[in-house]
Design a protein around this nucleic acid. Structure first.
Lengths: 360, 360
DNA sequence: GCACAAAGTGTAAAGGTTTGCAATAGGCAT
DNA sequence: ATGCCTATTGCAAACCTTTACACTTTGTGC
């Protein structure tokens, strides 16, 4: 770890100029003669000198580092956001740091302390913790954070805290899925995975209720706050076991694809065929969803689009305190129609009628 | 963004002490009286002062930032590594930054420049780009990077570059899977997804060959360098189409679970039943793998374990240039036996015989 | 009372850049 | 020649901490 100690002053001395000049050469400042520039660059190359971005950060009072707060990078939804956000930041010459905050965690003073300390240029915030309906002190803590850096969130509005925001319009997406099922002739639809824990789940449920109500469809809500395959399997079985045969739904919407995977398995063990005995619609469009048996109709939340747009806002300075919170950017989930929801023929008709639907 | 300008000197003035004392209070230096400490802390709290870690980093010549270089955070394997590494770093008071480097990218001067500039405390390196057999200049570039910071890699050895390393022992894992298939009576096994692109694939293939050879099993290699579900489906069909019925394998190993998902689908469309007509074994143990139809027998690469161990090395300073490269830490992939490889009865016997096998 | 140690605190330098301002030099019109 | 303008460069302060060193108190053992 030798030449890491090489400073701009060493380069300046060697090139016979002042450190100011070297700095100007390196940051492509116009006011420097071509001759000097080339001489400086030669010395820089000769020693392989790399400017110290920490010192630069101190001087410029910006770190070119952006923080991303999310619960679980292993979840493909968050991974998609993170990936796209990182790419966007990279394009702007910045780098991203991940700050993990568990699903059920809360944004404490101590937590934001870590962010402030780092003097980040901004923070992108997403995950269940900003959706908890009983996070009373959340707006206060976030206000404090905002004194130090711009904030952009991905998700539903945080009551009492206005900021730049990108919003996946889940109510609309789910409503659209309900529309599809109605078109396919379903009159009684179940919703698996309802919970009051987080608002983005609440939004799906809300979209479901509204969609059903509007079309006069009987809505059956099945509560389950853990949304994994195992619980999906269990839920499917319990839901149907708990109903007399003549009250069974003919279609189920599942809160996410992971859980839908389990639902498919549960239905299979009950001897039901999807979609003939029961249509299934998921939510998330995970990469395995096109390869379930049968392939899963689902909502595409456009995680990468969300991440890209949010990061773009952050970099563009829209998250700045001094600017009034702009209207949220709405990202409409696309409905991805595969086989789990009904016949190919019907699909083809739908696609012809509404080109907005995506088929994959 | 007001009080972000508050410095340690302001606090010192307000508390009637010197900045040195404030610094000592904040970094819990012992030589400071309880009285002074409490007075300083009161002022700190009153103004909500947060030390500037950039200035600290400059002074201490360490950033408490660690870099992670990997191709694709959306891939669950890398997400697992990243997640565990982040957690480990967080525990040590550091933070991680993601530097993306595409699967087929190469570690250029320009790329490491970005890392050096940031004065990271260390780098964790993993992904296909360090496995490319024709990356001639890789050791040179990495040597340069190492002059600035410790490096730990996850994966096979990089020829010509010694460093701390965590290695998922794929040959052994695959060999073990072959053993299992042999035990189950298979005499002809295909391997789908062979390629010469990256060495970690090569390692799997090598393990497969060796395993088969040792047991006198006929090995059929099917080359395909793209490892996604669609290619899996196609590969399964082509493999079997290309062989006379009496030369068909009775089992296939697939390079990863994602591709195996497609293989399952391909076999289904061919009218074959898994595992009765054809046993299938994947590799990765992705979270959907327990919910395919039938559930997939697979190798668990222990991504999180890999990430944790690598980061621990990095933090522990084992990646330091001055230390000779230690023996690599070997992580043995666990064989996860589900239904896609054969009968439950046989499984139970296996499990009883070798407790090292994991069942999920 | 004295020598000495220990504890607590302050001073100032250092860490590596960037940048406002001043200085210099050269070009050009007068 | 003179004065002015512009292009180029250097000087030095500022960014905000940490820490080696020095100094002052206070306490202890004799």
């Amino acid at each position: 770890m030798l030449d890491s100690r090489l400073t701009i002053i060493d380069i300046a001395r060697e090139a016979g100029v002042s450190s100011a000049t070297v700095s100007r050469v390196l940051s492509k400042h116009p006011n420097v003669s071509a001759l000097t520039a080339s001489r400086v660059r030669a010395v820089v190359d000769k020693y392989g000198y790399q400017p110290n971005s920490i010192a630069r950060g101190l001087q410029q009072r910006q770190s070119h580092v952006l923080g991303i707060i999310m619960p679980d990078i292993k979840h493909p939804y968050y991974a998609g956001i993170f990936s796209a956000a990182q790419r966007e930041a990279e394009g702007a010459g910045s780098v991203v740091q991940l700050y993990r905050l568990e699903y059920n965690g809360s944004v404490t003073e101590e937590f934001i302390r870590r962010l402030i300390e780092r003097r980040l240029d901004g923070t992108l915030l997403t995950g269940g913790f900003i959706e908890s309906p009983n996070a009373r002190e959340l707006p206060i803590v976030l206000d404090r954070l905002r004194q130090y850096m711009p904030i952009v969130t991905i998700g539903p509005e945080i009551p009492g805290f206005e900021c730049a925001r990108v919003w996946p319009d889940l109510p609309n997406g789910v409503r659209r899925a309900v529309d599809l099922l109605a078109e396919l002739g379903h009159k009684r639809i179940a919703f698996i995975g309802a919970t009051t824990d987080t608002r983005s789940v609440g939004e799906r449920e809300q979209g479901f209720r509204e969609g059903c109500e509007r079309l006069g469809i009987e809505a059956i809500l099945y509560n389950e706050s853990i949304h994994n395959p195992a619980k999906g399997e269990e839920s499917a079985v319990r839901l149907l076991d708990g109903l007399p045969r003549n009250r069974w739904p003919t279609a189920v919407m599942v809160i996410n694809d992971l859980m839908a995977l389990g639902v498919l398995k549960g239905l299979r063990t009950l001897g039901l065929t999807v979609p003939d005995d029961m249509a299934v619609v998921g939510c998330d469009n995970q990469f395995f969803s096109a390869f379930t048996d049968p392939p899963l109709t689902t909502l595409n939340l456009n995680a990468e689009e969300l991440g890209r747009l949010a990061m773009r806002q952050l970099i563009g300075g829209t998250g700045d305190l001094s600017v009034n919170a702009p209207e949220p950017i709405v990202v409409d989930p696309g409905l991805i129609i595969r086989e789990s929801c009904g016949t190919r023929r019907r699909m083809a008709q739908m696609l012809a009628a509404e080109p907005a639907l995506e088929a994959v």
